[in-house]
Design a protein around this nucleic acid. Structure first.
Lengths: 130, 130, 130, 130
DNA sequence: GTGGTCTAGACCACC
DNA sequence: GTGGTCTAGACCACC
């Protein structure tokens, strides 16, 4: 799996790593049980400090998205319990509201937002189907 | 306009204020030229320190969402130049990807996400129409 | 003299009025002793509240740029003493430094800045010569 | 890097801090990736409250001039997208007009202004070359 | 150690 | 009255 870092982005590097791995899982590129690239490899490939990558992996483990075992590597797999549906929806609703607000600030109307959402859904679904 | 603060939220108080005012504008509750509640009034109503509210207002002004004038108050608008459409879409697309990723993490499928988005869109549109 | 107000500008309206009158004087469009348009006329022409225009005129008088006499109108004419050259240069130097800093932030190189300055100087000089 | 505060200046302290850091970057004293002095150090050195310095740093980050990370420090850069050239020139032109107007108010002629601009350009370029 | 957030209280300019 | 600035001191998350 290839991780691309945007050093100029306002998003911290470790956040970029986390988000990209989560995205890979959501899109099916990484599946339950798959082994993640070793921290070392990601670090050299991205030219990012190993500690920063390690931190991203730790955060992912804390969230229950991956499991790391010393000497073996890190694997996709949520050990955690499925989150409460009600709570999930509340959090997501808040995020959606922020999205719609931002779209309004950008002078994008509802149709443009819907089109964008469809486009991103299509993109994320491409791998999932295969 | 009523602002509700969630003290337990990880989102800083001043961010909550900003987001709620932006939402009010996006939903049409606050319109171009409308006067915002004075900083002091919001502070006493929310039991939040005046400085924190002032910070939110200043941030909104820096973003061009409102305009403040000492002695007069703060007003919606200032609009400024419309942001580049391409750039707007790129930023929004990123936010959508994060949203979809989060939904997957919550074990919510595409239909659930779509339903949630429709619900939020309906809600934000209620005032707009009137 | 025609004053054009940009309501969306971050610059307060009364500041816009002040700056445009000062610019007119600097460019020679308004000369020593010339009578300014009455506050009333400016207000109706710009559709700005009369008080705001009045405030601009007051500020100009406080700075010694114009003189107002009740029932007669306002006239260009600095009664004030010429400012200290050393102090003037210090203030101006600071403004220039800010300008160069801003240009750097905009990724404009020295030549671009020089070209812009030449252009504005040429523009301001057009009336002066006649 | 040494920051000098003029308490008597009408310019707010946090603005002075911002402008001096921007100037340091424009003149090459601070370069992309350089680490800024920690907020606390600047505060004690200038005898300005820590919050005021923090505010300046935050504003610089919002503008994309620096990037701050808790626990690591603040660094020059973040560059972000290059601003629209046309828009940049319009903003700068306005600033130049204000400058020329001010110069006229100070009874400084075109040659004096040009000399001053040359002097400031020379000064800002001294470090850049080295 | 680093920056980020918040409060309480003060003073300011402008209206 | 309005928003803007600053201080002093506290607590926080992250390193």
């Amino acid at each position: 799996m290839i991780i691309k870092i945007e050093p100029a982005s306002p998003k911290p590097v470790y956040r970029q790593v986390i988000d990209q791995i989560k995205y890979a899982i959501a899109s099916g590129r990484l599946r339950e049980g798959d082994r993640l690239d070793p921290i070392r490899d990601v670090a050299t490939a991205t030219r990012i400090n190993r500690n920063t990558i390690a931190r991203a992996y730790q955060e992912l483990e804390r969230e229950g998205v991956i499991r790391s075992r010393a000497g073996q590597g890190s694997f996709v797999g949520g050990s955690g319990p499925a989150p409460h549906r009600g709570q999930s929806c509340r959090i997501l609703a808040e995020r959606i509201d922020e999205l719609l607000t931002l779209a309004h600030q950008f002078r994008l109307d509802e149709d443009a937002v819907r089109a964008l959402i469809d486009e991103r859904l299509k993109k994320i679904n491409l791998d999932k189907k295969t």
